[in-house]
């Protein structure tokens, strides 16, 4: 990898986006990159805004924050407008579902929660669907390492359902990329 990835995930507390960011970070470490992952949230336990981010680079990472992400994924529209201006000029925006708002050129609409609800039939897996979508669209880590990192992060009793969620997300991500 000869690129610096700055990925911001935006959602609501309880949606599992911090978990997704940790899985992405672990996968990127496995691929030999320097990685920093963190999250911001408000004082509420759930329901408040929640954002997580991952920086991956082949250079050492000193400053531990992101200024202009080249990937932004929005799971719920609570607070994404605040972050939208940050998106790098040719950055990719991944939106869960559709919106009529004016958005940057490189926007990918993927019905992430619908996939979790209708196809995986487990709404709670929406975050793992989103992991598949990110990997499918960006290719920032390989499918194999992403899958391995995901398997290490979920409880064994939920492994099969999460594998299904990941595969469906991956498929949807690739389709969104092709349709662009």
């Amino acid at each position: 990898m000869n690129k610096r990835w700055e990925v911001r995930l935006i959602g609501t507390g309880g949606q599992g986006i911090v978990t997704v960011s940790i899985i992405l970070a672990n996968a990127s470490v496995k691929e030999g990159n320097n990685v920093v992952q963190s999250q911001n949230y408000g004082p509420e336990v759930r329901g408040g805004y929640s954002t997580a981010y991952v920086i991956a680079s082949n250079k050492s990472i000193l400053y531990p924050k992101i200024d202009s992400p080249n990937v932004m994924m929005v799971m719920s529209d609570t607070s994404y407008k605040k972050y939208l201006p940050e998106l790098a000029e040719d950055g990719m925006l991944i939106m869960n579902g559709h919106t009529e708002e004016t958005l940057p050129d490189k926007v990918y609409f993927v019905p992430i929660t619908d996939i979790a609800h209708d196809k995986v039939k487990r709404p709670i897996t929406a975050n793992i669907v989103s992991l598949g979508v990110i990997v499918g669209i960006t290719g920032m880590v390989s499918e194999k390492t992403a899958l391995e990192a995901m398997e290490a992060a979920v409880p064994s009793r939920a492994l099969e359902i999460n594998k299904k969620a990941f595969a469906l997300g991956l498929e949807a991500g690739k389709a969104a990329l092709e349709n662009k």
Partner: peptide, 9 residues
């Protein structure tokens, strides 16, 4: 808070 919460390689 930054150092406490960040994960890194």
């Amino acid at each position: 808070e930054i150092l406490g919460h960040l994960r890194e390689r």
